[in-house]
Design a protein around this nucleic acid. Structure first.
Lengths: 175, 175
DNA sequence: GGGTACATGTAATCAGTTACATGATTTA
DNA sequence: TAAATCATGTAACTGATTACATGTACCC
């Protein structure tokens, strides 16, 4: 009998990834996350061991342990899990975006810092976002064709975001 | 003697806001947050009661209790607090941006949803970001002149971000 | 004078983080 | 064969969230 638990966004990340790549181990999930949603929604790999257990408790995932050498646990989604995932995808997402960015936070308080700190901040952020942009370009090349269309869309959003940030910080750096 | 504690971004938000608006109460902090960094970096108001206490323990804030009616606690920053804040502003911020957005997360998994859910998602996100954009425009009008230049810069970043998102979701909606 | 919204806080819980630990493979 | 590095987890802690609770001011 599925327990009633409240699922966090992380829960849905796990649920969704299992649905797409099942059967998977926690370690494989970690890799999947590392070059996809981990860029937007990072969390430590320990979550990828704890969270599937919770989901299994809730009856949304099932697992079996490998017989051979390493007894890794491979997860699959249950029918109940599919229902919950489908319902989540169907529901609206009204919570506004959170942009957690230490650079922006420091900019917010930048009037309390000396001019040189501001310059350094802008320069560093500018560089950092160019670097991230480059990573996204590489991902696009790696997964560009054959990859899931909607995953690629989120990657495109990443690229657009980085371009916006690059322009923003460059202006601050020069202005 | 200041204890050595590890400070979270939330700690610095509090430290910085106290530095700028001191002496302040937790409730006033809540209001400040509500129409500034709270848009990027939200957290529940209970943090604005807990965190200043921690910072005071660490010797970075000081407080005195009002004598009159409500005995509210008003916080000020200590010299040690200024040092820590200044050091933080001086240091680099290399951690990449986190974009926590449920809409994007659902888009990532959208290939598992029916077409109509995708349409609905795009339409809703489009609307949501336009709404948020409008809020930012109002903020700019309200605080535009006389406001802190760098706070306004972060607001400008918010506007740019929303414009990017609006274009992105509109394309998905139509395409 | 009773309702409603604003103001102010505390307590319990838990997700998420940090740190540790160790087995298996590859490489030099 | 030693040393890295990859793979795979667990345990402890705590910041953050959720929920509760009460006081004060205003207004109809």
């Amino acid at each position: 009998m599925p327990e009633r638990v409240s699922l966090t966004p992380t829960s849905y990340v796990v649920l969704g990834l299992v649905a797409k790549r099942q059967p998977v181990t926690s370690y494989e999930l970690k890799q999947q996350v590392a070059d996809s949603i981990g860029y937007f929604w990072p969390f430590p790999h320990s979550q990828l061991y704890a969270e599937p257990l919770r989901l299994e408790d809730a009856g949304l995932l099932a697992s079996d342990v490998e017989a051979s050498g390493r007894k890794r646990r491979r997860y699959t989604i249950t029918p109940a899990g599919r229902v919950v995932l489908g319902r989540w995808l169907h529901q609206g997402a009204t919570e506004p975006t959170e942009i957690r960015d230490l650079g922006l936070l420091k900019l917010f308080f930048a009037s309390m810092a000396p001019e040189e700190d501001r310059r350094a901040l802008a320069a560093e952020q500018h560089r950092g976002h160019e670097e991230r942009h480059r990573e996204y370009v590489l991902l696009r090349e790696r997964f560009g064709d054959g990859g899931d269309v909607y995953e690629m869309r989120t990657l495109q959003m990443g690229l657009l975001f980085e371009e916006t940030m690059i322009a923003f910080w460059r202006e601050l750096e020069e202005g």
